[in-house]
Structure formats: structure tokens, C-alpha cells
Nucleic acid binder design. Structure first.
Lengths: 150, 150
DNA sequence: CTCCTTTTGTTGCAAACGCAATAAAATTAT
DNA sequence: ATAATTTTATTGCGTTTGCAACAAAAGGAG
């Protein structure tokens, strides 16, 4: 009886832990890298979209991003046609940090799939994307007060 | 360019979030279920072994398990032949809760792999186990102050 | 246009998190 | 046998986390 979610959980905690330790000396505190990466890859993205991509609580994202701004890695900009949404952009400092984050990320991904064939790697990614798609609606549902029956 | 670790991270956060919300009304606070499950499945296990399985900081595990004991879900017992290790056992209350946790866990795993063939499911588990094995040594290393080169 | 709902974002508060430092028992080395 | 190292567990401290509750703008329904 293998348990997919437990493997996923352990792997996720491993890499989160490693990343946080490695980025700390560069001025990024816990989990900030997660948000910075998304903002750098999607300039102008709004917070709620990051929440959807990353799967974290609104309030957590709000404060993490606030801190990123305070620390000079990103900037919030009022969209001209919309006074509610705040578009997020990396600063120069943020972009520099991103280059480093990318190197670490590439290294970690390569380390993760070491020993897998190119085909297995593709398969793994495809299956994980499927799992993620399966999970998303349940997450939305439960986060919004819905219940799962089992 | 698909990123395996980001998928893994999002999936893990989804299920952690769902689990925490679902278990809260039953008296389990954040992430306690993770430790309770391991103790129920491995009666007599010590804390450090759980840390190794789950991939979390010692101090986090220590306090989570302490709380589990305080809440009457588990018991710590001094091993007769060893005064350092503390063997962990579920109480009756803990075992009852475990039955429920198992149902939720089974449901979540089934939901996760919905639409995958039995073969794909096996493949996914196998590949995840491989990734986990790849990651473990790096986690140990970095947690103990070592550095990765990239 | 006005009312209702949804979307986006923030804040209060209590709890969990994890690095660092500590302690003590167990194991290994000399 | 004794010293050095490793293993196991805890605690101090500041930070992050997330549920709840809230606010305000945007979007839809009548």
C-alpha cells in the first residue's frame, strides 16, 4: 500500500526546507522565494492569481508579498483601469535575485529526477499535472467552506 | 519547461490545507494528523524516526508530539533498555481518530489519482519514491549545515 | 440605476514553524 | 576506561501561518 500523497508531502517539505536554508543568507526569509519567482515570471500578476497558482492562504500571500515589497524585491502598482487589483512587478534587486533562484531551482529539479530516464521524467511531470488538476477543485471547495463526503 | 517540484509543492499544500480544515472539528490542530498517523502505524516509534520519515524540523515534531500527548491522542513511554529514547504509542482516543484519518487519507489518494490507469498510478508512486530517495541525502546534508554546489 | 454577489485585498489573533543553542544519554574511538 | 562524537529530545525567540472577520471595488441581476 503505497501512499502517493505522503511521498509528495515529504518531497515538498525537503525542498522547501533546503530552499529556505539556502536563500536565507541572500536576504530572503521563509518562503519568500515562492512568491518572488511567480512575480518575476509573470510581471503584472495580481496577488490572487499567485494564491491560485501556489495554493496558499490569501493572508499568507498578502503578508509575504508585503514583506517582499518592504525588502525592495518587488513593487505594487495601481492598475490604471482598475482600482482594486494591484499589479506586481519585480525591482532590479528582485530580478537579480531571481537569476539566482533559477539556478537553485534548476539544480533541485535535476537532483530530484536523477536516475530517471527522459521518458520517465516526462511521465512524472504529466502525471503530477494531472494530480494537481484533480486536487484543485477540492481545494477551492474546502477552502470556501464546502465539504467532501467520504 | 515543466517544473516537477512546483507541482509537488502545490499538490502538497492543497492536501495539507484540506486535511487541516477537515480535521479541525475533530480536535486536531494544524498538522497534528501527520504525526498521529505515523505513531499509529508504527507503535513504539521514536520522535527522531518520525522526523526522518516526515522531513520536518526536530523542534516542530517535538512540540507537535508534545501537544498530541497533552490532548490525549498518544503516550510517551520510557524504554526499559534505553533512557534516552521515548517510545510513542497511540491511546484509545488516538486509535479511534486514526480510523477516521485513514478514511480521509484513502479518499484523498483516490481523488488525487482519479483518471489515471492502475499502471500509471503504480508508475507515479514508483517515480515519487525514487525522487524522494534522491532528495533525502541532500535534505540531511543541508539541514546539518552542509552546502550544495550549483 | 440600485441591490446583491463576487473578487481582491488586508488585519487581529492565536498557533505552528524552524534555526540556534542546550542537555543528556548512547555510541564510537583512542 | 576515558574522551570525543553522535543521537535523541527540548526550549528560547522571532517569524510565518491561516482561520475569521472585515473592507472596498468590480461585476451582474432585477
Amino acid at each position: 500500500m503505497g501512499n502517493i500523497l505522503r511521498e509528495v508531502g515529504a518531497i515538498a517539505r525537503c525542498f522547501e526546507s533546503i530552499s529556505n536554508i539556502e536563500f536565507k543568507p541572500y536576504g530572503l526569509s521563509k518562503n519568500q522565494y515562492i512568491y518572488l519567482v511567480r512575480i518575476c515570471e509573470n510581471p503584472g500578476i495580481i496577488q490572487e492569481e499567485i494564491v491560485y497558482m501556489v495554493k496558499v492562504d490569501r493572508s499568507t500571500a498578502s503578508r509575504a508579498i508585503e514583506k517582499l515589497e518592504r525588502d525592495g524585491f518587488i513593487q505594487k502598482e495601481q492598475e490604471s483601469d482598475n482600482r482594486k487589483n494591484k499589479a506586481l512587478y519585480p525591482t532590479e534587486k528582485g530580478k537579480e535575485m531571481y537569476a539566482f533562484l533559477r539556478k537553485e531551482d534548476d539544480y533541485s529539479n535535476a537532483a530530484a529526477v536523477k536516475g530517471l530516464s527522459a521518458e520517465e521524467e516526462e511521465t512524472l511531470l504529466r502525471l503530477l499535472q494531472k494530480v494537481r488538476a484533480n486536487v484543485e477543485p477540492d481545494w477551492e471547495k474546502v477552502k470556501n467552506g464546502g465539504t467532501r463526503e467520504y
